[in-house]
Nucleic acid binder design. Structure first.
Lengths: 214, 214
DNA sequence: GCAATAGTGTCTTTCAGACAATATGTT
DNA sequence: AACATATTGTCTGAAAGACACTATTGC
């Protein structure tokens, strides 16, 4: 998942074979007998989206008996945090990859999300993958304030406005600008780089970088 | 897991067979081919600890290749929230069940927890089960303020002091009494029952109950 | 009355939201 | 200079921490 055009988005693959032929689905694969779950997630991401060195965290394990109409499949879902450059790289690396936007009709919860393509048409994902995406967004919302997940959705140098856009996109609300600045700086999570934005038609913003505090 | 004597605790089983013979371990079992993960968790809890109707939530899936020295095992760990009565019931229902205390040496994190028996002696759990317990405690801490998990660790009627004890045990810190009361009441999560504590040698506290706000 | 804990009132501090003023780039 | 956004200052209100005070039960 990532943030594009001030909205949360996810990379999907168009399915060729049945079941759910022609529908979009999350990239997935089987875990090898001698492979850890995280290694498998990284391998799938590399093979299906051409991405490597992406921060991933385990999301949830889906084990309902009839999730897959063919046979019993237990899926350990992982959430990959994609910076804008990674999203563009994946779209270029593989023609089957698409980037869909997650629209959240209700403001407070993520019970019901709509996955829409670039044109705004709703996509119905294969299997229970919409449910997986809804949980992923909920997880992002929950961790945004307490962990550094927001920075993994940005380039290494970013402006405070970009950071706020990411937070607003994930939360689905607007935030108070001075309060947001104060909070981020007070947390000690970001450090000024001395560099400034370029190519704007107005005052350029200062560029910050994530400062790991561990 | 539950809270006993103002400290977090967990139900464990003493292992009979190798590997880790004689050491304590979390109750576990294999998932049936036609059984969901949650159903399997409830079944294991019933068969190994004599407990039913316990609130459970999925914790994490552990998939390191060498977790089990015999062969590759992927474990979907579930966290069961036990009220005091459930802990006592499990201890009586099965002689092999023991209730161990989780001691957290550091105040801020749960990187390193000590599992100790009733006498205070440290237990070394089988497999990666100490790591699982550490993650469970971390999860409880994280959810305590935002969800109703605290109430699942209490009887249906409880005093504010009992509720505060649960929060303090899980967090490993003391809390301010008036502020805690205000917060709980303002959240709308609890409702007075009109009943009062009995059997105390001092002023009895009012009994509250959890009030589901959904 | 005494001991012990329940329950409340109030002051202070901290922090987020609101709003507006100032700063600094491009065109 | 006009414009657009960055950045900062300040006021206000909500909520937590600290601390002390009052209340109520058993003995």
């Amino acid at each position: 998942m990532g943030v594009r055009k001030r909205a949360p988005c996810a990379l999907l693959l168009r399915r060729g074979a049945a079941p759910f032929a022609g529908q979009a689905a999350l990239p997935g694969g089987f875990v090898g007998a001698g492979e850890s779950l995280e290694d498998a997630a990284q391998r799938v991401l590399r093979d299906k989206a051409g991405l490597s060195d992406v921060r991933c965290e385990q999301l949830y394990t889906f084990g309902e008996v009839a999730r897959d109409p063919r046979r019993r499949i237990v899926t350990v879902a992982w959430l990959a945090l994609l910076a804008p450059a990674a999203i563009e790289a994946a779209l270029e690396a593989h023609p089957g990859v698409l980037c869909a936007t997650l629209a959240v009709p209700e403001a407070d919860g993520v019970r019901d999300i709509h996955v829409v393509d670039r044109a705004g048409a709703r996509l119905h994902l294969a299997f229970d993958h919409e449910q997986i995406l809804a949980l992923a967004l909920e997880r992002l919302r929950g961790k945004l304030d307490y962990t550094a997940v927001g920075f993994d959705l940005l380039p290494s140098f970013f402006t405070l406005r970009q950071l706020q856009d990411v937070h607003e996109a994930i939360r689905g609300t607007t935030l108070n600008k001075p309060a947001f600045r104060r909070r981020m700086i007070d947390k000690g999570w970001i450090a000024p780089t001395g560099a400034r934005e370029t190519g704007t038609s107005h005052r350029p913003a200062a560029l910050y970088r994530f400062r790991d505090v561990t």
